[in-house]
């Protein structure tokens, strides 16, 4: 995209779409007041604007708008029993927010939604009620940011702050907050608690600059990880997805080396590793939105209901990364995501 086009592009969040029912919530007024120079557009159902066909996802990514909505049902989704690191607990996930400020070429959301505008469900208390009911008499594990990056927007939306208070009062509710952000300041004011897992996705700098647009460089993320560890937070690292682009072996072994030398891996809660994979149902839409990214051009293998790299290609990578992966396994628990 040329700089010329930037002249003609509106500012992010210039339009705030508000579902009628969202006006019942104080949170809506707090947010609209924060964006008081934006155009406010009333919507009877947020899906009328979010799910419209023929939206230009890539252009919206450059300058997203905000949709304030009320989640009516399906507050919790049952997660897969595989590989989440909390084997003795029931696993759910939820979406307090959809879409994020970062623009990652490989994001599954590109295949999942037609819009890059950010949806914030303002009725967070209803999520709490649903979680409390589900967690009655048992421990649960719930990633709360599969479809967004909450920490990078925390200064505006304060979703983490609300979940933090909820977790302090409900020690059987274990949440995972995934992020690529370097915004460690937003969590510095909180005392670490054992039922909140901060999970950083780390990638080699070349991958970040090419395919994780708008996200912080590796060095800043490493700094945030180390500060969180020093403060006593439970921290997970995620090397997921690993992108098998040209020279992947060289790029990732250098990256693994850097992580081993700059992060005290033995202090981590665990580490997740996974190759790029996407549900087949999303892949078609993903392809149409990702035509100009090298991420798309690979020898894909349709494996069950997922698309991923060919077994040969993955094996070749694993062989070259083996010494590093062994070292990671020696220092912490390593989960391979499938």
């Amino acid at each position: 995209m040329t700089s010329l086009s930037n002249i003609y592009l509106k500012k992010p969040f210039s339009h705030i779409y508000v579902e009628n029912q969202a006006f019942k919530y104080d949170e809506t007024y707090r947010i609209t007041n924060f964006f008081k120079n934006s155009q406010l557009i009333e919507v009877s159902d947020y899906r009328n604007v979010f799910n419209s066909h023929n939206q230009n996802f890539n252009l919206q990514k450059k300058t997203p708008d905000l949709i304030l909505a009320v989640k009516k049902d399906n507050f919790l989704y049952k997660g897969s029993d595989l590989c989440h690191g909390y084997e003795n607990m029931d696993f759910y996930y939820l979406t307090n927010m959809i879409n994020c400020l970062y623009d990652c070429d490989y994001c599954f959301i590109r295949g999942m939604y037609t819009s890059a505008n950010i949806v914030y469900f303002v009725n967070t208390n209803d999520f709490f009620d649903a979680v409390a009911e589900e967690a009655l008499g048992k421990d649960v594990f719930i990633p709360i940011s599969y479809e967004s990056d909450l920490l990078v927007m925390e200064s505006i939306f304060r979703i983490f702050a609300r979940w933090y208070s909820f977790c302090v009062e409900n020690s059987n509710v274990n949440i995972e907050v995934r992020t690529k952000s370097s915004c460690i300041n937003v969590i510095k004011k909180y005392r670490p608690v054992k039922n909140i897992l901060l999970s950083w996705t780390l990638s080699p700098d070349l991958i970040i600059s090419s395919y994780e647009k708008k996200s912080p460089p590796l060095q800043k993320r490493i700094k945030a990880v180390n500060q969180a560890l020093e403060a006593g937070w439970k921290v997970r690292l995620s090397f997921d997805p690993i992108l098998l682009i040209d020279d992947a072996e060289k790029i990732y072994t250098s990256f693994f080396n850097q992580i081993l030398s700059e992060i005290p891996v033995d202090f981590l809660f665990d580490l997740n590793i996974g190759f790029f994979r996407m549900p087949t149902t999303y892949f078609r839409e993903f392809k149409s939105k990702t035509q100009f990214s090298p991420v798309l051009y690979s020898d894909w293998e349709y494996s069950g209901d997922h698309v991923t790299y060919s077994s040969d290609r993955k094996e070749k990578f694993m062989k070259s990364a083996e010494p590093y992966l062994k070292e990671f396994s020696r220092l912490t628990k390593v989960l391979y995501m499938v």
Binding site: I7, L9, K10, S14, E42, V43, S44, S52, Q55
Partner: peptide, 27 residues
């Protein structure tokens, strides 16, 4: 125009304004 309501069906439509402009916006 940033929102259109069809008064027969009461369906809502939202032109997706991404351009920077100097016009007043209204439904």
């Amino acid at each position: 125009i940033n929102k259109i309501t069809d008064q027969d069906t009461f369906k809502e439509f939202f032109p997706n304004i991404i351009i920077s402009h100097s016009y007043k916006e209204h439904e």
